[in-house]
Amino acid sequence: MNTIRCLLLAAAVALAASPALAQSVKIKQGMLNVPALSPLYLLPDEAKKQGIEIEMVMFQRFADARTALASGDIQITAFGPQDISLGLGAGAKSMVGVAGVGSGNDCLIVRKGEDIKNWKEVADKRIGIGAGSISWLKFAASVQENGLQYNKLKIVNIVGGGSNYLKALQGKEIDLAVVWHPFCAQAIVDGFGAYPTLDHNRSKTVGGLISVLAVNRPFMEKNPDVVQKLVNAYIGVLEIARKDTARWAKIYAEKAGLPENVAAESIRTTRLDPVMPLESIKRISKFLSDNGVITRDVSGEIAQSYTYDFLAKATGKSPEQLGLKQ
């Protein structure tokens, strides 16, 4: 009888320890309808394979996703490479960058038949911007790098979404829109816009970085194994999208409610890559403080808000290979 009891007890312990029967972890993922981030719509399916249930929470702006992550309302999200610096400047230390997303996505657009071939020509143009966006950051940094004074440019502040930039461009209120996809793609496909020769993604200060994947610090410290599984799943998601760009475009088209040709143009120049260039992020932080976007310089402490531990384990690469000194 004792033998039977021992066998039953052993079986119960084995069942309780079984990964297949273990209770899954439930988290919330912040999400935005941005072309470069659309592969992240696949993250819940990939994470589910590792026992993680994800509830997706949609946001209209990176700033809103940043606030939710900092407060712990969500546990993971992707947002601009400037967002952790902005949060840190305001005293929020609860966000940690764990992976990069890639380059591209931000774009400049002029009216079809027009062009801006070099930075000197910018001085005579009316420029539509949205201060604080990563596209604006790349543009403002490029302006300084090329010997122009930003405060002497003909800046037109555009309020609201990217469609307002296109209306201003069509209405000849501006000559250049400093914007992002899918809005550039819409202008191209609809036949009234063109990409200028000028490219602000080549900024030496900012680089072409689109976004970073970040987690809530208290959640990470309490659940490092879960964060590792999430980063593993994330690397798998990037690989899926890189290998099948048609699927990537279709996902974005469906989620954003856009024609597939607009979605395809939106992702055409985006390069997905998990590398996190820390030196570029430090330069972004310094630029933000130097230009009054944040009240103090956080470039000397920003490294504490990024970790390569999870990404290194997920990829088998060293922190140096993953952007520690880039």
Rank of each mutant, 00 (worst) to 15 (best):
T3C: 06
R5K: 15
A10R: 11
A12R: 09
V13H: 10
A14F: 14
L15E: 10
A16T: 08
A17W: 14
L21G: 09
A22G: 04
I27S: 08
K28T: 06
L32G: 08
L32H: 09
N33C: 14
S38Y: 02
L40C: 04
L40W: 05
Y41Q: 13
L43R: 04
Q50W: 15
G51Q: 07
G51N: 09
I52D: 02
M56H: 05
V57T: 06
M58H: 11
F59V: 03
Q60L: 13
A63F: 05
A68M: 05
G72L: 03
I74V: 05
I74T: 01
I76Q: 07
I76P: 01
I84A: 11
G87S: 10
A90M: 13
G91I: 02
S94E: 11
M95W: 00
M95P: 00
A99C: 04
G102K: 04
S103C: 11
C107Y: 13
L108E: 00
K112G: 10
D115Q: 12
I116R: 14
K117T: 12
K120H: 12
A123Y: 08
A123G: 04
D124G: 15
G128K: 05
I129D: 05
A131Y: 07
A131L: 12
I134Y: 06
W136N: 11
L137I: 06
A140K: 07
V143Q: 14
Q144W: 09
Y150E: 12
N151A: 15
L153Y: 07
K154C: 06
K154M: 05
N164D: 09
N164I: 01
Y165H: 14
L166M: 06
L166T: 03
K167T: 07
K167V: 13
G171P: 06
G171E: 15
A177T: 03
V178C: 02
P182T: 03
F192W: 07
A194N: 10
P196Y: 00
P196I: 00
L198T: 00
H200G: 11
N201A: 11
N201W: 13
V206F: 03
L209W: 14
S211M: 02
S211T: 00
A214N: 05
V215T: 01
P224E: 01
D225F: 10
D225V: 06
D225C: 08
V227A: 06
V227L: 04
Q228F: 03
N232C: 07
Y234I: 00
L238P: 01
K243W: 07
D244E: 09
A246D: 15
A246E: 13
A249P: 01
A253Q: 04
A253P: 08
E254R: 02
K255I: 15
K255V: 14
G257S: 11
L258F: 02
R268L: 15
T269I: 12
S280R: 13
K282L: 08
I284C: 02
S285H: 08
K286I: 11
S289P: 01
S289E: 03
G300N: 10
G300I: 00
E301T: 15
Y308N: 12
D309N: 08
F310R: 03
A314C: 07
G316N: 00
K317V: 05
G323I: 04
L324Y: 07
